[in-house]
Write a protein that binds this DNA or RNA. Structure first.
Lengths: 259, 259
DNA sequence: CAGTGGTCTAGACCACTGA
DNA sequence: CAGTGGTCTAGACCACTGA
């Protein structure tokens, strides 16, 4: 029996309402209506975690739609991690354990400009160097081979926000050192010249080096949020960056909404 | 013209190969083959960011499948953020700007056990309290109203890893104080009793309080990675937690793979 | 064996875009 | 107006599960 009777015998005329950016006005496509119906039930406890959800054929009857339409609605919920399906058995409300949150780590320029603030970068180092053991390992190049090294400070409205210490594999970006990094960020430039297949991140707390503390105009005893990022293109490491942010000026915020 | 000719005139017999967990053996369903074909081209630069991709009807002809099948393949790429579509215009390879990475923040018990290690929790505070101004605001309750407060330390193989300072709205979990938190984590318990509609996170660096430093057996001058989490259920805040981790023992790792 | 999900076909109507 | 994507229908065959 329908819990929410959102469906009647009237055939759907394709609605004409604008599907604007937010999509918040009204979900009118049948598969959207079915998704919304199921999400509501999941959010309100009609189907608590682990419960058996209605089968496709039940929803077909309830909403007077074809199975393809019901299937799409449920499949998208599955892709969002809200339900789990087992062939031959049924569809179940997912246990919402893993509160995984998508912490977006964007190009610092976009991030600052997105807040409506002014971004300015200063370049403190830009040269070719011989790879140390740790850098050689991270970029998968030979010890003492030539790598590019830049050190920038990114300012938000004039306040130093991020110290970017970056090593680049010359094979992936031979012209890296000729770029004016006060005009375009290394991240942005590298996105353009080297397709990115994989990025590995870590986020940790730590203390700045004395040089970093000076560049960031902070005390060497103040903690920092440190993001390390290594990007790889088909087995070839492109770049390794250490991004140091004063704890008092930077935090990562995120929201997780399952339903 | 097909770049990769993965399709012939032979009609697909449904393959029988096991679709095992990894799914790595071979993607045999037509929509999977088309997805793989398009992903390969995106990864190898056949369609650089911004390029016009083949239309649905071109792919229909190329792979000898129906439009629904092609549509599903492309729609899933769109949902993964790899292509962008505009009705009446076409499908375009996405600019891979935002390197958003899903940093999963799981229940600490699952995380430690998942590493094959032993989890143990010690309880240092478990009581009802009057809400201070900041807690009242975060839990959206009246100043000086009763809230539950627990302070736990989570150990991994005997080493203190996380100090969990948590406030709970009694309306959402009236029996919270009767739970044995050496047996089940507050996170796990609250997941069971209160459906979660939204979680807000922040990740920052900071110094531990003197009490936290003592509980974590660390120097008060050592930085910590601090995760703050507030969960909300339909406008009613459930809980607010401050999770403090010694920098030397904890970092968040993540991998981002667009293709 | 009945019920479930997984996938596909060959059409259809529509809104939108840009020439 | 031709081409594009957005969505749907009413069927189909199949693999899988559990009684």
């Amino acid at each position: 029996m329908p819990v929410f009777s959102q469906s009647s015998t009237i055939k759907p005329k394709r609605a004409q309402l604008d599907r604007s950016v937010a999509g918040a006005i009204s979900a009118q496509a049948p598969f959207e209506r079915i998704k919304h119906y199921l999400k509501s039930g999941l959010a309100t406890g009609v189907w608590p975690p682990g419960a058996l959800m209605p089968s496709e054929s039940e929803l077909v009857a309830q909403f007077s739609v074809s199975r393809m339409t019901v299937g799409r609605a449920i499949r998208e919920l599955q892709q969002e991690g809200l339900v789990e399906r087992t062939q031959g058995v049924g569809t179940f409300a997912a246990e919402l354990h893993r509160v995984s949150s998508s912490l977006t780590i964007r190009d610092i320029h976009e991030e600052i400009v997105g807040r409506g603030h002014v971004h300015r970068a200063t370049v403190h180092l830009k040269r070719a160097e011989r790879a140390s053991a740790s850098i050689a390992k991270r970029l998968d190049v030979k010890l003492n081979s030539v790598v590019f090294h830049t050190l920038l400070v990114h300012h938000e409205n004039g306040v130093p926000l991020q110290c970017e210490d970056r090593f680049v594999n010359p094979i992936c970006a031979p012209d890296y050192l000729s770029v004016d990094f006060t005009e375009v960020t290394p991240t942005h430039y590298l996105f353009q010249v080297a397709p990115l297949i994989e990025a590995q991140f870590s986020v940790e707390a730590g203390l700045p080096s004395s040089r970093e503390a000076k560049l960031l105009q902070m005390s060497a005893a103040e903690p920092c949020l440190i993001v390390s990022r290594r990007t790889v293109n088909r087995d070839t490491p492109i770049t390794f960056a250490r991004l140091v942010h004063p704890a008092s000026r930077y935090q990562i915020d995120s929201v997780f909404k399952p339903y």
